[in-house]
């Protein structure tokens, strides 16, 4: 395949970036998107140029590191991660625009790599349960209805990639936060901290500077794991309950 790539190049956060055009011949349709970028980088290194910085780790769609905007769609819009997107999704001769996630809480570190630690801080604000350490408890002592465990598992498949924020016209992190609130809120182990969790996580996402959700649905449509809009309704439901119960965010 022959491709024209237009990639966002930015040396570091202090300078302005720009789209730079590269031409590639001889790309196999069986390559993943990241392998295609590897080919480009090998050439850039050979030519003594600066390779394109992009994040990645597992390359099997589970770590959530590799998200970039491809032709205006998060992860390329194929309901999978960038690392699992294959070049056969493109046509010979295509021009492909590659940009980093855009949101002020996700500042660009270099080229396509952004700092997603804002998500870590949202998790730290409430995305956990407190349990005593020691031997694992007998699983049968805490029964979970099948319906709840399935819905909790669906929500738990969120890999924290940030595509929802990147795709959202408001740059809201609501789907990510809602996936965590739903995952823990549906399980018995998540009940003691349920109200504090939702209040603290929403407060943190506001503090980080994410936008507010207006239920447009770009997030869910762009999510590689198909996290549903239902999780957002669940978060709102929990938050209203918490506010009625007078729960205040921890300072």
């Amino acid at each position: 395949m022959r491709l024209t790539l237009r990639i966002w190049r930015q040396k570091d956060p202090s300078v302005k970036g720009t789209m730079v055009t590269y031409k590639l011949d001889d790309i196999s349709p069986d390559m993943s998107f990241l392998e295609m970028l590897d080919v480009l980088n090998e050439r850039l290194i050979m030519d003594g140029d600066d390779p394109v910085a992009f994040d990645h780790d597992c390359r099997e769609g589970i770590c959530g590191m590799c998200g970039v905007m491809i032709n205006g769609k998060a992860h390329g819009g194929e309901h999978t991660t960038t690392c699992q997107l294959h070049m056969r999704s493109f046509k010979d001769g295509d021009t492909i625009d590659v940009e980093p996630w855009r949101a002020s809480p996700f500042p660009v570190i270099k080229d396509l790599a952004v700092d997603r630690r804002a998500f870590d801080r949202i998790i730290q604000a409430g995305g956990y349960i407190s349990v005593p350490t020691g031997t694992a408890p007998e699983a049968h002592s805490t029964p979970v209805p099948k319906k709840d465990s399935d819905a909790a598992f669906d929500a738990a498949t969120c890999i924290g990639c940030g595509a929802c924020v990147a795709a959202c016209p408001n740059a809201s992190s609501m789907l990510f936060t809602a996936a965590k609130v739903t995952h823990l809120g549906l399980l018995p182990q998540g009940q003691p901290e349920r109200y504090d969790r939702v209040v603290n996580m929403v407060t943190q996402q506001d503090l980080e500077g994410f936008g507010g959700c207006t239920n447009i649905g770009e997030c869910s449509a762009s999510c590689p794991k198909g996290i549903s809009m239902e999780t957002i309704s669940r978060l709102n439901h929990d938050l209203l309950g918490a506010l009625r119960a007078g729960v205040k965010p921890k300072s």
């Binding site: 819009g77 855009r102 408001n170 936008g211 507010g212 649905g217």
Partner: peptide, 23 residues
């Protein structure tokens, strides 16, 4: 709040799901 959350826009952005009404 949304304006502040994305001061730098995309060069290319395509909609996946948003309706005309929501926009």
């Amino acid at each position: 709040q949304a304006k502040r959350a994305r001061p730098v826009g995309y060069v290319t952005k395509k909609a996946m799901a948003q309706s005309y009404a929501s926009r």
